[in-house]
C-alpha cells in the first residue's frame, strides 16, 4: 500500500468513525445517563436518511432537507420520550429492550409502507461535488471532508455542552443521583426529554449527511446500531469522550480490515475476516478494561 492510498484510507476511517460517533454519542448518553437501552437508536439514523431523501426531493435542496429533518427529528424525539420512554425509567432493562425493539419493527414497517423497499440515492449538493486531487490518479471527495468537519464541530459542541455548561453539569449530576437533582429544584424529566431528543437528532443528522455517500436502504439502521453498541461498550457506557475515541478506533479498524491483507500459516485472515475485526477489538479492550476505555469503575 503506497502512502496516498494509506492516507485516503486513514481519512475514510476517520470520517466513518466520526459519523459513528454522532450516532453512538446519543446512544451512550441515553444509556449512561438516562439508563435506557435504546435499540431503536439505529432507526433514528435510518429515519434521518429517509428524511434527507424525501425532503431533498421536496425542497430541491439537501441543505433545506437537513434543516427541516433536524426539526422533525427533535419533534420525534420529544414525542417518543413523552409517550413511551418516560414510562421505562423505573422498569427493568428487559422492558426497555422489548419496547425499543418494537419501535424498530414499527419504523421499518412505516419505511416500507411509505418509501417501499428499494435502495435510493441522494445527490451531493452542487457546491460540495468537487474532489481534491492527491495524485494524478487519486483524489478525495470534498463532501467527505465536509462531513468530517461537521462531525468534528458537533463533537466539540457536545463536549462544551456537557463539560462546560450548567445544563451539562445537571445532566451529569442526574446520572449520579436523580432524586437529588430534583430536590435542587430541577425538572429532571424535562431535562431527560431534551437529552433524548438531542440523541435522536444527532442520530438522524448522521443519517442525513451519510445519505449521499452511503445511499438510503432498508435495514440501514440496524447495521449502524450494532456497530454503535460496540462503540459504546469500548468507549465506556455514558462517556462521550470514550465514544469519540472508540468510534475513531472502530472506523480505522473497520476500514483497514477491508483493505489490508494478512496471511498467517497459509490461512488468509484479512480481508476475509474483516467483518470480525471490530468485535475482536471489542473483546481485546474488554479483556484489558471490562468497563471500557473511559468507563466508570468495575
Amino acid at each position: 500500500m503506497d502512502t496516498n492510498t494509506f492516507l485516503i484510507q486513514v481519512l475514510n476511517g476517520i470520517q466513518y468513525g466520526l459519523l459513528l460517533f454522532l450516532v453512538a454519542s446519543g446512544l451512550t448518553l441515553i444509556l449512561g445517563i438516562m439508563g435506557i437501552i435504546n435499540l431503536a437508536h439505529g432507526s433514528f439514523y435510518m429515519v434521518g436518511a429517509y428524511l434527507a431523501f424525501s425532503l431533498a426531493q421536496h425542497f430541491g435542496s439537501l441543505w433545506l432537507a437537513m434543516a427541516g429533518g433536524v426539526v422533525i427529528a427533535v419533534a420525534i424525539g420529544l414525542l417518543l420520550e413523552w409517550l413511551l420512554i418516560s414510562k421505562l425509567y423505573h422498569r427493568d432493562h428487559l422492558y426497555q429492550v422489548l419496547l425499543t425493539y418494537g419501535l424498530i419493527l414499527i419504523f421499518e414497517e412505516l419505511r416500507s409502507v411509505v418509501f417501499g423497499d428499494d435502495v435510493h440515492g441522494v445527490a451531493i449538493p452542487e457546491m460540495l461535488r468537487a474532489s481534491i486531487p492527491l495524485t494524478e490518479t487519486l483524489s478525495y471527495p470534498v463532501y467527505r471532508l465536509w462531513m468530517s468537519a461537521v462531525c468534528i464541530v458537533l463533537a466539540i459542541g457536545m463536549y462544551l455542552l456537557i463539560q462546560k455548561t450548567r445544563l451539562g453539569m445537571t445532566i451529569r449530576a442526574g446520572a449520579a443521583n436523580r432524586e437529588m437533582v430534583q430536590s435542587l429544584g430541577i425538572n429532571i424529566n424535562l431535562l431527560y426529554r431534551l437529552v433524548f431528543a438531542l440523541g435522536v437528532a444527532l442520530a438522524a443528522f448522521a443519517g442525513m449527511i451519510a445519505a449521499p455517500v452511503a445511499s438510503v436502504f432498508p435495514g440501514m439502521g440496524n447495521q449502524v446500531l450494532i456497530v454503535c453498541f460496540v462503540v459504546v461498550v469500548i468507549g465506556g457506557i455514558g462517556s462521550v469522550k470514550g465514544a469519540m475515541l472508540a468510534a475513531i478506533l472502530i472506523g480505522l479498524v473497520d476500514t483497514f480490515g477491508k483493505v489490508l491483507t494478512l496471511q498467517i500459516g497459509g490461512v488468509q485472515l484479512l480481508p476475509e475476516l474483516s467483518g470480525m475485526m471490530i468485535y475482536v477489538l471489542m473483546a481485546a479492550v474488554l479483556l484489558a478494561r471490562p468497563q471500557g476505555l473511559f468507563g466508570k469503575g468495575g
Binding site: A173, A176, E179, S183, L184
Partner: peptide, 21 residues
C-alpha cells in the same frame, strides 16, 4: 422539583453529593 422551587432545600442523609462533578 416544584417543592424545591418554593424555597425548600434538602441535605439528605448520606450527603448526596454528585461524585462525578
Amino acid at each position: 422539583y416544584a417543592i424545591a422551587r418554593r424555597g425548600v432545600a434538602y441535605v439528605p442523609e448520606g450527603r448526596g453529593i454528585f461524585p462525578n462533578l
